[in-house]
Amino acid sequence: MKDGRTKDKHVDAVIEVAGLSKTFGSVAALDDVSLSVQKGSVLGLLGHNGAGKTTLVNILSTLLRPSRGRARVAGFDVVGDGVEVRRRIGLTGQYAAVDETLSGRDNLILIARLLGAGRAEAAARADELLEIFQLSDAARRRAKTYSGGMRRRLDLAASLVGRPDVLFLDEPTTGLDPVARRGLWQVVERLVKDGATVLLTTQYLDEADYLADSITVLAKGRIVASGTAEELKGRAGSRNVSVTLRTDEAVLRTTEVLRRSGLDPAPDDEDGLVLIVPVHDSTEIATVVRATDEAGADIAGLAYAEPTLDDVYMALNHSSAVR
């Protein structure tokens, strides 16, 4: 650390990206991206496939060279000081990057040995991580036999062997079932509580909402929005409650009561028995249910949807530009 590490006012920014661009042939995968991530915080990088998320992660983890611009990770330049950067990062990509022919334990020992740990030290570190990630029981089974969730946890454990300053999680839950997804969220949540700095990419607004302190939305290689999850959801506008009723008459009566309660229901375009009611907080959700009851209408179906990444894009008026 003696050389090259910045000791200026930005010392708390563990990831600093300025004017970063990457072109493949004539395609701009990243276009003039600037951002910074403070020590101990989580940045969620939100975007669809092809938005440039993985390209950014690959540049920051020194797998790719940028076409223009600069990036520093843990105080070192990703181009000039690649080795120093690699000594301080952990990367968990879209695929569980484990050797399937080895046991979970041997995978972790392999990584520790490559990082310079002695045999006993490597084994101890492996056992420690296996316990944390609840893989002790499967420690000596080959990774090939692991479930998707177990593989991701092993992959994450492998990224943490060297206690990195910065952790890159590139779509860590893609392809996982909801239970495994939750499980992985909890692991990441705990990492963050323990002080890790994380850059997380995801296609899911709820995932970024759950894990990230701030969110940057990427579309076609450009940053189109950034802020907290609440700010972005706010920009996406209100959330909708949709009520399915049984008769046209019930729809009319409920609409009337809802209007009196200060809400603005509209019939669904596709199904005349469905009312879409924009709401702004949970009190208004209760109002919808009460109004239906007051109208004496029988509820056949009730749904509430959080805004998705698509809603955010739509609100940002980038919907046509991002797909």
């Binding site: 520790a112 490559l114 990082l115 944390i132 060297g162 323990d194």
Partner: peptide
């Protein structure tokens, strides 16, 4: 249980191979 990551390690844990 042991912490996953001690906050702010001053130097990399291992010295490389």
């Amino acid at each position: 249980r042991p912490a996953i990551d001690e906050p702010g390690p001053a130097a990399p844990r291992y010295q490389g191979s």
